[in-house]
């Protein structure tokens, strides 16, 4: 019931708008074919990383929390798994370039 510790209406609104902008940018880029493939992929990944940070700071309150830093522990494990998923998939699916 402790209202202050859960962020203010202002921070939520900012986070909400930021996350929408970060979603719309790649969508527009892709739908209007506005970039070369490599530049497009790089931009999308950049937007994804920014989106991740927006979520963490504006909605998941990663800075708050008490003694056992469960937030941080969960974040570290989460990052390890995200890296595994992305890098693992790239590695595993790289066979595709050899067979095609």
């Amino acid at each position: 019931m402790n209202q202050e510790s859960h962020g203010s209406v202002k921070s939520y609104t900012i986070g909400f708008i930021l996350s929408i902008i970060l979603t719309v940018i790649p969508l527009v880029l892709v739908l209007n074919k506005m970039m070369s493939p490599t530049a497009l992929v790089v931009t999308i990944i950049a937007m994804a990383v920014l989106q991740f940070l927006v979520q963490l700071f504006f909605f998941m309150h990663i800075k708050e929390g008490e003694k056992p830093r469960y937030n941080v522990m969960a974040l570290i494990l989460g990052v390890v798994i995200v890296v595994t998923i992305v890098a693992g998939s790239v590695w595993i699916m790289s066979f595709n370039s050899q067979v095609q």
Binding site: T84, W91, I92, S94, F95, Q98, V99
Partner: peptide
């Protein structure tokens, strides 16, 4: 619970991702 996230390819070894994978 952590290792469980690092074994998934054993369900499709026959995809032929290569000896290293």
């Amino acid at each position: 619970s952590v290792l469980a996230f690092f074994t998934w390819v054993h369900h499709f070894f026959t995809m032929g991702a290569g000896a290293d994978v």
